[in-house]
Structure formats: C-alpha cells, structure tokens
Design a protein around this nucleic acid. Structure first.
Lengths: 239, 239
DNA sequence: TCAAAAGTGTTTTACGTACACCCATGA
DNA sequence: TCATGGGTGTACGTAAAACACTTTTGA
C-alpha cells in the first residue's frame, strides 16, 4: 500500500513522485493517561526490518512540502486539519545508509481520541509509545523526535497549542498535567488556575466531570477567538 | 567561479554535487550605522538577470547541510565560525521556475567590520542592504528573508545572540539600539542598562569611547562563560 | 469519615515601568 | 553654555511564588 511508504524504501518509479532524495518524517504527538505519546510505524522489510521509526513518505510533483506532510498524516491517521509545523531539514550525509537522502521533519499534535475512532484506517503496523520510553529508532529518527520535543516545549510557552492534544472538553488539572508532562516540571495548582483563567482563553462549560471519586471539576473548552486576539497583540506564556 | 553559484543556475554536471533538487540559501545579517542589514548577491545571467537574491548554492556529496551552509558562507565572505542556524526547508512547487527545487534556508549573524576587512575576497557582485528597504528579491527569497527576521526577533529574546552583530567592544547604547532595530520598538535606556548588567553577561573594559562629542561611554565585551552558565540554567530575555 | 482532587484566599517578594535628574564632553 | 548622550536614583504597580485553607464527592 502506497500510503505506508516510509523513508525506509526507495520509491519505485512512480510517476507522481519526483523528488527522489527528499523525504518527510513526522513526529505525531498524542496525550493519553497523563503521558505524552508518539505514533510510530514498524518497518516490515528492508535493512531495518522489525524496527520502529517515524511515519514518513515522499513528496509528489505538484505538491508543496507542507501539503505533502498533511497528506501523509491524513493517509496514516485519517485525520485532517491537524496542528502541523515543520521542524527543519535533516541532512547528515550518512543518515540514510543506502543513499543520500535529506528529510524534512514535521511535528503534529493530535487528539488521540479522534484517532482511536478511526483506528484500522491504515493496515500498517502502527502504535503509540510513551515518548519517555522510546529508543532505538531507525536512522536519525531519535534525533528528530528529540528536536520535536524541544520545539514543542518551546512553542507551548509561547502559544497555547497544548489544546490540540486534549479532548474538546477538559478540566484545568488535565491541562496543567499536560503542561507538566511537556515541560518536565511540576506546577502549583492554584497559581496555574489563576494564570490560565485570567488569559480568558478558556470558555467554561455548564457541564462537570462525571464518575470521578472526588469533587467533580468544571469542564472548559478552548476559545479560538480570544486566542486570535492574543496572537495579534503578541504574548507569551510562562509557566 | 564556482563559489558564486546561487540557486539561480542548475549545477553543471559536477562530480562533487549530488543533490540536484536541493539548494541552500543564506540570510546574512549585519549591523551598521544603527541599521540591520542583509547581504545580497546580484545575478548576472539567466532568467533573473540583474535581480538581487540571497547568496546560496549546492550541497556536496559527503557534506552535511550545515557544513554546506558554512562552506558557502566562507566562500562568499571569507569568514569562519559564524553564528549560523537553519531556518527551515522551503518547497512550494513553483518557487523555482525552471524545475522543482527545494531550498534549505539559513540565517547568519556576522560582524560587518570583520567582513569589510576581507572585502574583495569574492568577485561576485555583492552588497549590503538595509533590511527595511529590501524588496523584489528573486524567487521566494523575500519570504525567506522575512522568516529569517522573525526567527532573529524570537531568538534574541531567548539568547544573547545579538553580540554576534556588534564589534568586539561596544557601548550599552549600541547594544540597546541593536535590540530596538531588531525588535522594532523603543526601549527605556536606564531600564535596559540595569537589566542587561544584572545578567552579568558583559565584561566592562577599562577603555572608553573616543572622539565623540559627548561624554564618553564605557566599553563592554561579551562574556561567553557566564553565557554558558545561563544557557544551562535556562533563561529568557524580555525587553 | 476519609481520601482526593476542586477551588479560594493571602502574604511576600521581585521585577518591569515610568520618570526625574545629574554628569561629562565637544562644538 | 548648550546639545547630546552617559549614567544614577526612586516610586509605583503588577505578577510570580509559596502555601494555608475550605469545599465537594465517591468509596
């Protein structure tokens, strides 16, 4: 199946692929059970058989590289309109053993619940891994993952992109745990509440948590309108 | 002359060039007369004859892309050990009219005085332009320049990379003007002084300014050791 | 009635911001 | 003696940090 092609194989002479020395590799982040996760693909053949790597693929002739990254993501997860940002180009001469291939790294943030709904969309062997436990990826994918994590850490302090990893409705503590996971340090609950609420980025819902063995927390939704306003003014998060 | 090759020409069959659909383009920033400048190259032939663009070139077979960028910079300016960072890959399908070429953008910070000393190193037509006045660059170079400016603005708030644009010895007001130029807003002199001095990044010199028609200012030098310490701890500049 | 998380209040400290003002020097 | 930038001092408001405390809910 074409859409499972990763940077492992050299593309067969395929009329829609023109750039034979450039690939795309995506770091797809998810957040589940209070842990940051990443979506990996298992290679079935070739020199890196049975090893895990980042999902990736080739760029078509009349397609921008951002478009290619979006297409690959759609093919793999069935999800559109994902938060997606380029990391950079990776081009060590020996990064790919069979030939000189430069790859453009991307990272994406997706709501795992959305993905789960459409599981089975692709027949490739694909799985979520806790980022903290990932090791021994093929080629330079470990490095790309690290750069992706760094970028995410930086971005989340400047833009409230964390919402892309959470379900539509979430509690303040869930959000705080997300920040703690990504940034790698603990925070003060009361101070976090005040700070994030004062930004006016969250719309409180009438709803509350259900089936929890403690006081039910209020649920919130991300408010994209105030986000836009904030972006225009320029701002920065510091937690 | 080979070292003037920019992304304008398709490379002649040259044994050391292997990647024929990837180029490198550099945004080289300088700072002179209180203005942020950029180094441009004039194309002498081809479809963009007499138009200005970013200096760039091709990647050799056994060379990483960072190495290639450093080499190109050395060939063009004669300067080594420059502050150089990759921006990202630019790959709109129509960015280069003759064929599908993806370029990797870099930006560099150099001390113009150093460059002036070695002027004439290259025979290419090369000149400094005020960034604010640059327009109509070839291909997507205008966009790359803008992304470079954005990145510089962001970085300078997180790392004291501005020093790379100043002479060895500088005054606090020079440094402040540099920040004002890059960030695009005015600052309070007393507050800037205190803030930057408290960071302990500057080594005061015994020397003072000469030949100025006002009280001579103390000169400072950048202190790379305290910078390292700061980097490890993590910090952020906000002006 | 206890655990566990929700949520509020308060105090202290540090820092950014905005100015007023004096100093040194050449024209 | 004036203009120009060099350099110091201070007062105010806001925000971060630390932490004590009350509330709600299911087990």
């Amino acid at each position: 199946m074409e859409h499972q092609s990763t940077s492992m194989q050299i593309p067969e002479a395929e009329k829609s692929v023109i750039l034979d020395s450039i690939t795309i590799d995506c770091v797809i982040f998810g957040f589940k059970n209070e842990e940051l996760e990443v979506l990996l693909v298992k290679h079935k053949e070739g020199i890196s058989k049975d090893k895990w790597g980042l999902p990736g693929g080739w760029i078509y002739e009349n397609e921008g590289i951002d478009d290619a990254a979006n297409r690959l993501l759609l093919e793999l997860t069935g999800i559109k309109d994902v938060y997606l940002e380029q990391l950079r180009a990776f081009g060590a001469p020996d990064r790919f053993p069979l030939s000189r291939v430069i790859t453009v790294g991307y990272y994406a943030l997706i709501k795992e619940e959305d993905y789960d709904l459409k599981a089975g969309y692709t027949a490739a062997e694909v799985a979520w891994f806790k980022v903290s436990e990932v090791k021994d990826l093929i080629y330079d994918h470990q490095q790309i993952l690290e750069i992706g994590q760094k970028r995410l850490r930086r971005r989340i302090k400047q833009e409230p992109i964390g919402f892309n990893l959470l379900p539509e409705k979430f509690t303040l503590l869930q959000l705080m745990h997300l920040y703690e996971q990504i940034l790698g340090y603990e925070m003060d609950k009361p101070n976090f509440r005040r700070k994030i609420l004062k930004m006016d980025l969250l719309t409180p819902l009438a709803e509350k948590q259900k089936d929890v063995s403690h006081r039910a927390a209020k649920l919130y939704r991300f408010n994209p309108e105030t986000y836009k306003k904030l972006l225009e003014k320029g701002f920065n998060f510091e937690f």
